[in-house]
């Protein structure tokens, strides 16, 4: 187990380096003049241009610039953003809690409702509830998330006044609607996954055996079927948590939540390379670590899987 984790952690390194390098290269290839972007249409004073160019190694070739970045990163230094010259670690410290709040709400929502709906539908396959779940999840999957977000913002926020329209001034309550919107699509996938998995497991031999042994139906579904059918669901949930914690560009933009996704989008727009790469690094690390956690959870849920 320990060796497995160590090996996986080692395998993560090339992925993290590769992804950040790719983003680094893409941002560089985007061209444009990041220093000029800071000044809009005004001319940039020569001295400031020279200072910024030297500070961010803008004249060096790509691999060397990336080397500088990596060297800083290893020492825990994410660098400073081009715009406003804030330390990127500080920007992350501001933005990430915001993202985590919506992500938490979205995750709780999709886990509780999604699994419950999926399990109930799977147990009553072909009945009314099953069809209802299938139909409603398909509808949610088919609607683009920004339409869902905008429409619910207008109707539940502006017109009905049930939820705060945007921003984060009202504490927990202001994160509720963005969280629900963000979680809705994954909820649909989770419900469908859980449904298929439960329906498949109900046909297994071990269920018949359990019935023959005279176990109560609640024990059969609650212990035997549920535990076996949750494995794919847990995989999905884990991967989804990884991407949820990485911020949601669309949802955060609609509801004006200054989280990771909001900052990412802003960084791309003003071509703030250092900030963009910093946030992406965070994203990639979170994503890769979550994938490892999921793999380890497998072994907990399914004793047949062992990691040597």
């Amino acid at each position: 187990m320990g060796r497995y984790v160590a090996r996986r952690l080692l395998q993560m390194l090339p992925v993290i380096i590769g992804t950040t390098f790719l983003v680094f290269a893409l941002v560089t290839a985007m061209g444009g003049d990041p220093v000029q972007n800071l000044y809009g249409e005004r001319p940039v004073p020569e001295g400031i241009r020279a200072a910024l160019t030297a500070q961010y190694h803008l004249d060096d070739p790509l691999p060397i610039r990336y080397g500088y970045y990596l060297a800083g990163l290893v020492q825990g230094d994410f660098g400073t953003s081009l715009s406003g010259s804030r330390p990127i670690s500080e920007m992350i410290a501001d933005a990430w809690p915001e993202t985590l709040r919506i992500a938490g709400i979205a995750f709780a929502f999709e886990m509780v409702i999604g699994v419950a709906a999926g399990v109930m539908a799977g147990m009553r396959r072909g009945k009314f509830l099953d069809n209802l779940v299938l139909l409603s999840t398909l509808t949610v999957i088919a609607i683009p998330i920004f339409v869902l977000g905008q429409v619910s913002q207008i109707f539940l926020g502006v017109k009905a006044g049930i939820f705060p329209v945007s921003g984060t001034n009202e504490g927990f309550y202001s994160y509720l609607l963005p969280g629900l919107v963000l979680g809705s699509v994954s909820l649909a996938y989770i419900a469908r996954l859980a449904r298929a998995s439960v329906a498949e497991n109900l046909r297994m031999d071990y269920v018949r055996t359990a019935k023959a042994k005279g176990l109560s139906p609640s024990r059969i579904t609650g212990i035997h079927v549920l535990r076996n059918s949750l494995i794919p669901v847990v995989t999905y949930l884990g991967a989804d948590l990884g991407s949820l914690m990485g911020g949601a560009i669309v949802t955060e933009r609609i509801f004006n939540i200054p989280g990771v996704g909001y900052n990412l989008f802003k960084a791309i727009q003003i071509e703030d390379g250092p900030a963009l790469v910093g946030f992406v690094t965070l994203l990639v690390v979170v994503y890769v670590v979550m994938a490892l956690v999921v793999d380890l959870l497998y072994a907990v849920l399914d004793p047949r899987i062992r990691y040597a």
């Binding site: 893409l26 560009i249 669309v250 989008f265 963009l276």
Partner: peptide, 11 residues
């Protein structure tokens, strides 16, 4: 590892 939207916007 590249988030879809980030990659797409950059491209």
């Amino acid at each position: 590892g590249i988030p879809f939207l980030v990659g797409a916007i950059v491209i």
